[in-house]
Amino acid sequence: MKHGGSGDSKVGHEDLDWRIITAVADAKGVEPLDIDDRLHDIIDVDAVKQLFVGMPDKRSMTEGRVSFTLDGCEVTINERWDINVNSHSSVAAD
């Protein structure tokens, strides 16, 4: 599941944390508050922001992507702030 971003570094900068959580929740079919893992225990989101943010109001000067696992999902973020989530967990029937 892919969630779009923007080439403009100021878009998505402040809310990247929430965008990651909601992308994982969407992929898992749960509410964002039902995510078991705490994002900041998994990855330093401020470091990701610094990696991809260029000068204020400019496009990122760094190309690439960062991947990590959050609540059983592989999350990848690229320099355009696109968030791609692949759910690896299988839901067991009750």
Rank of each mutant, 00 (worst) to 15 (best):
1 M>Q: 06
1 M>I: 04
2 K>W: 01
2 K>M: 10
3 H>P: 01
3 H>D: 09
5 G>A: 00
6 S>K: 00
7 G>L: 11
7 G>V: 05
8 D>W: 15
8 D>A: 12
9 S>N: 15
9 S>F: 05
10 K>I: 13
11 V>T: 12
11 V>I: 15
11 V>N: 12
12 G>Q: 02
12 G>E: 05
13 H>M: 10
14 E>R: 13
14 E>D: 13
15 D>W: 09
16 L>V: 06
17 D>Y: 14
17 D>E: 14
19 R>F: 07
19 R>V: 00
20 I>D: 02
21 I>H: 04
21 I>Y: 08
21 I>T: 11
21 I>P: 05
22 T>E: 15
22 T>H: 10
23 A>W: 02
24 V>G: 01
24 V>M: 04
25 A>W: 03
25 A>V: 01
26 D>E: 13
26 D>N: 09
27 A>G: 01
27 A>R: 00
29 G>V: 01
30 V>N: 05
30 V>G: 07
31 E>R: 12
31 E>F: 08
32 P>F: 07
32 P>I: 00
33 L>T: 10
33 L>R: 14
33 L>K: 14
34 D>G: 02
34 D>I: 00
35 I>R: 03
35 I>A: 03
36 D>T: 08
36 D>W: 11
37 D>M: 07
38 R>Y: 14
38 R>L: 14
38 R>P: 09
40 H>S: 15
41 D>P: 05
42 I>W: 02
43 I>H: 02
43 I>F: 08
44 D>Y: 01
45 V>I: 13
46 D>C: 00
49 K>Q: 12
49 K>H: 02
50 Q>Y: 12
50 Q>C: 11
51 L>Y: 09
51 L>Q: 15
52 F>P: 06
53 V>P: 03
53 V>G: 10
53 V>F: 14
55 M>T: 08
55 M>W: 12
55 M>Y: 14
56 P>Y: 09
56 P>C: 00
56 P>N: 00
57 D>S: 13
57 D>E: 14
58 K>D: 12
59 R>L: 10
59 R>D: 15
60 S>D: 03
61 M>I: 10
61 M>N: 13
63 E>R: 12
63 E>M: 11
63 E>S: 13
65 R>T: 01
67 S>P: 07
67 S>R: 10
68 F>I: 01
69 T>Y: 12
70 L>H: 07
70 L>M: 10
70 L>T: 03
71 D>C: 06
72 G>R: 03
74 E>M: 06
74 E>I: 07
74 E>F: 06
74 E>V: 07
75 V>G: 05
76 T>I: 03
76 T>Q: 08
77 I>L: 10
79 E>V: 02
79 E>Q: 14
79 E>Y: 11
82 D>P: 07
83 I>Q: 06
83 I>W: 06
85 V>G: 06
86 N>M: 07
86 N>Y: 08
89 S>Y: 06
91 V>C: 08
92 A>M: 08
93 A>T: 08
93 A>E: 14
94 D>W: 13
